[in-house]
């Protein structure tokens, strides 16, 4: 068999989905803004505001894309976001000098959580849903038991991440853009990225090809946890102090999975990419903004969101041959 030597390009198949989704989202947003007469939303500032809605979910979803691509999943991100937000505000206590230690401590904690998740999945052979549900419960429980009341706040200077901007572009957007490009680069252009697609697409094949699949899975989990940590830090900066429920109230675990799958990444792994995920996040952001402009009540918004999640995945899943569970 020499015909399959041409290297499959994983980024290409998910591009149309990404473009289509992004187009639809922007179209929906523009139409709603024009219909409701809120043309201010279409100005540079309005667009920046819209894109800022993407930051928290976007960061988590980028990490989620890595684990889903490798054929795993991470449900612990919501609890981890809360933990990081609480930890950051607790350590900083408003003192700018503590900014760097707090950030390093948080990211270190995330790396440890990611390592534990990855080790249990890759070396323990335990189903990733169970592992990350379990670690999520553990983190959430300890957090709620020990930080029930608000304690501490992040430094004013730290809030620049959420509120500062350069030339009209918020820093938070630059952060998301930079990390997205980095994630895209790693997945498309590096050996590590190629290994992720290989392990997700066919773990046995990857192992036979000499890839240490366990290490790849473990690394993907650490990446996901670090991205969740970045989202937690951003939320702490935006809200000034963390509460133990930020992550859970935002349903960041399930929503990050939903946007990743909406963006064309397959839950079984090996297919998809960053572009689709970002388009999925953009869809959620425009829906949110659009529903707000239309004045749809919060509960109905949730109903529509549920229906759209199913419909958005169904659009490309319906062509799947064979069975899904």
């Amino acid at each position: 068999m020499t015909t399959n030597i041409a290297k499959p390009k994983p980024a290409i198949p998910d591009l149309p989905v990404a473009v289509l989704l992004a187009g639809l989202s922007i179209g929906f947003f523009a139409v709603v803004a024009l219909v409701t007469g809120e043309t201010a939303q279409l100005s540079g500032e309005g667009i920046a505001g819209l894109l800022q809605r993407m930051v928290a979910l976007g960061l988590v979803a980028l990490g989620q894309t890595f684990v889903i691509l490798v054929g795993s999943i991470d449900l612990s991100v919501a609890a981890l976001i809360s933990a990081v937000a609480v930890l950051a505000s607790h350590v900083m206590q408003g003192d700018p000098a503590m900014m760097l230690p707090a950030v390093l401590l948080c990211l270190g904690f995330c790396a440890v959580v990611g390592f534990v998740n990855g080790a249990l999945v890759a070396y323990g052979g335990i189903n990733p849903l169970i592992v990350t549900l379990g670690t999520g419960l553990i983190i959430q429980g300890v957090l709620a038991a020990s930080f029930g009341v608000l304690q501490g706040a992040v430094a004013r200077e730290f809030q620049v991440i959420a509120y500062g901007s350069v030339l009209g572009v918020p820093y938070s957007l630059l952060l998301l853009a930079t990390l997205s490009l980095a994630a895209g680069f790693v997945l498309d252009r590096t050996l590590f990225g190629a290994r992720i697609y290989a392990v997700g697409g066919n773990p046995d094949g990857a192992r036979l090809a000499g890839i240490r699949t366990e290490r790849v899975i473990l690394s993907a989990h650490m990446v996901a946890s670090l991205f969740a940590g970045a989202a937690g830090l951003y939320l702490a900066a935006r809200l000034q102090s963390g509460t133990p429920w930020i992550g859970r109230d935002g349903i960041y675990d399930l929503e990050s999975i939903a946007v990743t799958v909406i963006g064309g990444t397959i839950l079984a792994g090996g297919k998809g990419g960053v572009a689709g995920t970002l388009a999925g996040v953009l869809l959620f952001a425009t829906l949110d903004a659009g529903f707000n402009m239309l004045g749809i009540d919060a509960f109905l918004k949730q109903v529509l969101r549920g229906a759209i999640v199913i419909a958005a995945v169904a659009v490309h899943a319906v062509r799947t041959k064979g069975h899904v569970a």
Binding site: L254, I257, A258, V261, L267, F299, L300, K301, Q302, V303, L304, R305, G306, A307, V309, I310, V313, A314, A317, V318, R319, T320, H323, V324, A325
Partner: peptide, 19 residues
């Protein structure tokens, strides 16, 4: 529609809760 059940039932979860 071949939507994975974890996504489908997440959707109906949001939908039913909202309703």
């Amino acid at each position: 529609l071949k939507v994975p059940s974890i996504i489908t039932t997440l959707g109906t979860m949001l939908l039913v809760n909202g309703l």
